[in-house]
């Protein structure tokens, strides 16, 4: 028996918005420790890794490990039926081919049950090596979304360069060139407005804009985003999900041919 209750169903709605542009389907691995998802996009350029810890749920029970193969477009249709203030409960029997999403209004006067068929998906998990990143940058998530959106107008790629002085995003193409520099903030009223840089060595890497734009769909999950970079390895873009977990996107760089 698997049962997970979340008073704020809006969290799962936002998680789905954050992954459904990159992934058509994915396996939700449920265990005693929580719900995990790891999947590559169709082109195998990026990897999504989601972790929702069991202690972050309002109620959580998972007697046996369960892998739920889910069509994300179908799940998205169901999640759209939930009000932001509804209480969500996901339920599945052991070895089930169905998962039930139950939404209850706050006053419990309306109860909705949606059953969704599960799929058998080939499970392919990648091992992600522990890495000490040369640069770890934290910045407001809305700022990051704005920058990648703005630079996408100039070209398919963006160069992200980090030095002690700051972080620079650059793009160029037919219409010209664009550079956006952010310096580390010295003092801000709110922590979420801060730009912080921890740098061991300067790094400059090139990435495809379209993936960064897809990652930015996670913006509503967190006021801050963390970028981790080292030479010649994938970028990590991480959004914390309240007290319950995180979503990480790994993006392979563009390298000289």
């Amino acid at each position: 028996m698997f049962e997970a209750r979340l008073v704020q169903s809006s969290i799962l709605k936002k998680v789905l918005e954050a992954i459904k542009e990159l992934l058509n389907e994915a396996t939700f691995d449920c265990s005693d420790s929580g719900i995990q998802l790891q999947a590559m996009d169709n082109s195998h350029v990026s990897l999504v890794s989601l972790n929702l810890r069991s202690d972050g749920f309002d109620k959580y029970r998972c007697d046996r490990n369960l892998s739920m193969g889910i069509n994300l477009a179908s799940m998205s249709k169901i999640m759209k039926c939930a009000g932001n203030d509804d209480v969500l409960t996901m339920k599945a029997q052991d070895n089930a081919d169905l998962v039930t999403f139950m939404f209850e209004s706050q006053n419990q006067e309306k109860v909705m049950d949606y059953e969704m068929k599960l799929m058998n998906l080939d499970q392919e998990h990648l091992g992600i090596p522990e890495t000490d990143y040369s640069c770890v940058i934290k910045l407001p998530s809305q700022e990051f979304a704005r920058i990648v959106r703005d630079l996408s107008q100039f070209g398919e790629s963006v160069v992200i360069s980090c030095t002690k002085e700051g972080i620079k995003f650059s793009a160029g193409g037919d219409i010209g060139n664009a550079n956006i520099k952010l310096a580390q903030t010295s003092n801000v009223d709110k922590d979420e407005d801060a730009v912080t840089i921890e740098m061991q060595e300067p790094v400059s890497l090139t990435f495809a804009c379209r993936y960064l734009n897809s990652f930015a769909k996670a913006t509503p999950l967190s006021p801050q985003v963390q970028l981790s970079m080292s030479a010649d390895v994938p970028l990590v873009v991480e959004y914390k999900i309240g007290d319950i977990g995180h979503i990480r996107y790994y993006l392979a760089p563009k390298i000289e041919d």
Partner: peptide
């Protein structure tokens, strides 16, 4: 010219 790398060339299958 830059070429897009694949994520599988950095992370190996478990």
């Amino acid at each position: 010219k830059n070429k897009q790398a694949s994520i599988t060339s950095f992370f190996t299958k478990k």
